[in-house]
């Protein structure tokens, strides 16, 4: 069964001048994780906001857990959890106060709201910080509390809009751990991200979106396959760059590219380890010692680049 369905969603801003969503179609199978991957301004947040009843599309249909988002938004709100780009919790209140307040707003009653708040604080390793105002929390702790707030009533469908944007690597790792735990409980999760490795790590399937449309959809492996074979990468001393470029290009059959900062020469190859061996041998013949050499499967970055013609981080304009 599909837990989330979006059909032909269109949303424009500025009287139609900005097309945030351009006939976007999506569906997510119950109990699975769909990662929406795209750069800033691609329409990720707009999609989430429509599905979470915060925004009405200009046209199109959507349903969440079988409920029509446009006709019954208040019913949808009973079964979803939303955690946004910003930690949407009250900074001045303590973590505990926030969770109890949200619990009461979910009509759990004071007593159950307290029990649930304590459970969630425990689960997200926030018990120690429970009585401190949120403004004393680290970025990672805030996001965890925000996530906890979206789980108060065990939602059937959870929306996480860029859950790790702005976190340091450690905070991101922690957040990933928490999300992976959640997914084991069987919640249907729609996750947006601009981090390719995040989609790779957490999502069962990935929908790549750009300029308000889904431009590719599939498992991470399938998407990588779409881009094709492996890349050979060699790092050498500056003095040997020119010669190495020549060698790698001739083995690959395609002009090798150079990353000057890393002194890394790379090119796509189709013959895998045979090509690797050839390059090593030629380098050795030329008396060049490679500092690093390897074969890389394409990253989602490469996928994105080949699908959109621009890299995921390059497009940093307004949302």
């Amino acid at each position: 069964m599909k837990s989330i369905i979006a059909e032909e969603l269109v949303k424009t801003y500025d009287k139609g001048k900005v097309r945030a969503l351009d006939s976007l179609n999506l569906d997510v199978e119950e109990g699975t994780v769909l990662g929406i991957l795209g750069p800033n301004g691609a329409g990720k947040t707009t999609t989430v906001r429509i599905l979470a009843t915060l925004l009405r599309p200009d046209s199109g249909r959507a349903s969440v857990a079988g409920i029509d988002v446009l006709k019954n938004p208040e019913k949808v709100r009973e079964v979803i959890g939303l955690s946004g780009q910003y930690a949407a919790v009250d900074e001045i209140l303590t973590g505990y106060d926030n969770l109890v307040m949200f619990g009461e707003l979910y009509h759990l009653g004071k007593k159950n709201a307290v029990i649930r708040a304590n459970e969630l604080l425990e689960r997200f390793s926030l018990t120690e910080a429970a009585k401190r105002p949120i403004k004393t929390y680290s970025g990672g702790m805030r996001r965890r509390l925000d996530l906890a707030a979206s789980l108060i009533v065990k939602p059937k469908v959870l929306f996480l809009d860029e859950p790790t944007t702005g976190l340091d690597p450690r905070g991101r790792q922690e957040m990933w751990g928490v999300i992976e735990e959640l997914v084991k409980d069987g919640v249907t999760l729609l996750l947006t991200t601009q981090y390719l490795e995040e989609a790779d790590q957490l999502a069962d399937e990935i929908a790549v979106i750009d300029t308000g449309k889904v431009i590719a959809r599939g498992t991470s492996d399938a998407l990588k396959k779409q881009v094709g074979g492996e890349r050979l990468e060699v790092v050498v001393e500056s003095a040997h760059i020119a010669k190495t470029l020549e060698i790698v290009s001739s083995v690959s059959g395609v002009k090798a590219s150079l990353d000057e900062g890393l002194r890394q020469i790379s090119a796509p190859v189709s013959t895998g380890s045979v090509a690797l061996f050839e390059v090593l041998k030629s380098l050795d013949d030329a008396g060049i010692h490679a500092l690093d050499v390897g074969l890389k499967r394409p990253s989602l970055d490469d996928v994105f680049l080949s699908l959109t013609g621009h890299s995921a981080e390059a497009k940093e304009e307004s949302k």
């Binding site: 208040e74 709100r77 939303l82 910003y86 930690a87 949407a88 919790v89 707003l105």
Partner: peptide, 17 residues
């Protein structure tokens, strides 16, 4: 600004509360 209103609006509560 803090997105708190988003959170409130996504809850099954009276929208004017």
């Amino acid at each position: 600004k803090k997105g708190l209103i988003d959170r409130f609006r996504s809850l099954p509560i009276s929208q004017s509360a």
